[in-house]
């Protein structure tokens, strides 16, 4: 199941990059994708963690739109700060507790923190993340745990 989806994704990537649909190139693409899938199976990376397709529908429908909205809002705030003549920053370091159970969930949370302008995850430990925030407000809104709750709900599929 996972192997088949890996193969399909790789083949689609080949088609996107090549753009020519002759018989020879299609055969070469099939063989290449098949070879990569075989190597990946040998290296044992096509599993629950390396290829989490079971999370894909949930991610596309609920999490990513919310994350994009969040990125847009905080990007506006950060650009306002940069354009402000006196540069009103108050850099803060806080530790945010994580409630995710899987590594995929923790990685998603840490990456989401870093993706949002204004907050960066500096160090990731077992159950907490050290976050550097550009302003104290940003740190406080992260400590409220909205993003944490959403990621936890998203990973518990």
């Amino acid at each position: 199941m996972r192997l088949v989806s890996t193969f399909l994704i790789l083949f689609a990537f080949w088609l996107v990059l090549s753009g020519h649909y002759t018989a020879f190139l299609m055969t070469a693409g099939t063989l290449c994708a098949l070879g990569v899938v075989l190597f990946a199976r040998r290296m044992d990376v096509v599993d629950h963690e390396g290829h989490p397709i079971h999370l894909a529908p949930r991610a596309l429908l609920f999490y990513w739109p919310w994350l994009l909205k969040e990125i847009a809002v905080s990007a506006m705030q950060v650009s306002k700060i940069i354009l402000h003549p006196r540069l009103p920053i108050s850099p803060t370091l806080i530790r945010v507790r994580t409630t995710q159970r899987t590594d995929v969930g923790r990685t998603t949370f840490a990456n989401s923190i870093t993706l949002t302008p204004g907050t960066i995850s500096v160090e990731v430990a077992e159950d907490e993340i050290l976050v550097h925030a550009l302003t104290r407000n940003g740190a406080d809104s992260l400590a409220d745990g909205e993003m944490d709750r959403r990621v936890t709900r998203f990973e518990s599929a």
Partner: peptide
């Protein structure tokens, strides 16, 4: 704006925030 922030911010970590503005939005 992100590039300007990269130039204006006072230290490494705050500069990263400006750079992530370019990278994302």
């Amino acid at each position: 704006i992100g590039a300007l922030g990269l130039l204006r911010m006072p230290d490494l970590f705050t500069r990263m925030h400006a750079a992530s503005l370019v990278d994302t939005l």
